[in-house]
Nucleic acid binder design. Sequence first.
RNA 1: GGCCCCGUCGUCUAGUCUGGUCCAGGACACCAGGUUUUCAUCCUGGUAACACGGGUUCGAAUCCCGUCGGGGUCACCA
Length: 554
Amino acid sequence: MVTRFAPSPTGHLHIGGARTALFCWALARDAGANGTFLLRIEDTDLKRSSASAAAGILEDLAWLGIGWDEGPEFADGSVTFGGDPRKVGPFHQSQRQAFYDRAFQQLLASGMAYPAFDTADELAAMRDRARADKRTFIYRRPEGYDHAAACARMQTEEHVLRFAMPEQAVVVHDAVLGAVEFPFAELDDLVIRKADGMPTYHLAVVVDDELMGVTHVLRGQEHLNNTPRHVALQQALGYRTPVFAHLPLIFNPDGSKMSKRDKDKAAKKAVKVVGVESALASAGSVDGFSQTADSLNAWLGDKTAQLGSDQLGVLAGVLTLELPEIEVEDFRSAGYLPEVVCNYLALLGWSKGDDIERFDMDEFSRRFTLERIGKTAAKFDREKLQAFNFDTVQHMDPALLAERWRAWCERYDPQVPQVLGERMAMAAEAARQRAKTLRDLRAPLGFVFIADDEIVYDDKAVAKNLTKNEGEGLCVLRDAAVMLGGLADWSPASIEGAINDFAESQGLGMGKVAQPIRVALTGAAVSPGLGHTLGLLGKTSTLARIERCVKAHS
RNA sequence: GGCCCCGUCGUCUAGUCUGGUCCAGGACACCAGGUUUUCAUCCUGGUAACACGGGUUCGAAUCCCGUCGGGGUCACCA
């Protein structure tokens, strides 16, 4: 069994593509030694493809834990993916021209391909005419076509090669959808070689799947209408037809298609709310932000205009706007765990049939079967993904969580490990209980990133917990400071115990003791558990903050 | 518009092939109560769906037909 994932390197890996890759991976993985998961880069569109996008996709897949057996080589630390044990490469379509040329010759010789000389304008005119007549435009080889003459003419004239679609309906046998019949009338003579000599997607995919021995083609349902063309091409070339499985589509919660453009839309909306001037005022000084009032206005006025992801990132940052996660990289930077993303993705359009929803990659590959793939499109529910991620963060081994957090921070928030240093494990423990993502881990720890003498006290918190009832809270705070000053073991558990004992000895409820301390240390009525809050601050800072607070409010 | 795919709680889904065990199960979200030093967690309980209309049948979420609804696709992009 050979499965393949064949992305086009025009940007980061889309979350829908990630699910396709995951399913392909699981299917091959479950076949054990007989299974091969292959990665191929479909870069026949020279204008839109880029090597950096291809590299990005490799990295996205590796991060997700979706390793490929064959394909471009990729090394990350101790793991290496890719290679060519069966000698079926190269894996970039731009490097496989000779194979495509051979197919073109074969088809041309058998009369199943023919050159066509229509210009773009002529084709557009034909389409317009069809539309005016309320017909669907179907390109067919002209009546009285002379193959020999056309072949001679193609030596000197710009042309494309088209496939002469055999006059018969094509039945696609899909592992998910069953038999689907496409009438001949709907199948036109598709272009298989572009004017620049490159193969189109249809031809390249058919040739490569055959040569690479691909047995199972899993892809999004948007490809279903292409499949009869591929089957016809396979038959014309004498190829085997693989098992097809078309996966249900993934949509936004509102039913619209999940696309990179959603990020742009969200940014446009936010900029419109605050106004171009204000957006520019805050974003203008950020490194790498290259927009002007004019360019922003032009962007806002043009629905199809899109800003680069770096520019959007800056805007999102200064406008405290959360861009919707669409690409794998977005989920990574948002602080989701790759194994959780995969777990959630596995449930979109697939289910084992029991009530088990949580499993790791290994278990998924064992549970996965083609038969259990569903037919209905799914809406992407970030809340459920978050719930899964939250649950995983809660149950992760503390040391591991700290390690994962550090790795994430090094890429997206380097200040955190710089300030926290050895305290990261304790900080992760302190913050995890309200963190849905790795990114969330920082928010409850804001007080650690502020100097002892720069704590800003929240008025309401002060009134409620310190100055109310003639400074009842402040009294407790003074006594607590004395007690804490005498505490030798400054571990969270010890601190927690000491404060508990203190409250009991004073005949006070925990709230009467904890809240004043909280306000003194963080300025607010909300913080992580006291043991961790004090533990992170250390004894010196704790006492300094209490002293400053008492002075400020007495 | 043509062709193609799909239609179970708000969402992801189980159940549909092999009609009765389903006055429809699980998860997320939501609501209520409880635990708790704050926020949160956690625990308990609850609300909530077979798109509609016909048929077939003793019996239909399950089979058939139609309607409506949603989506995909109609490029020298993939």
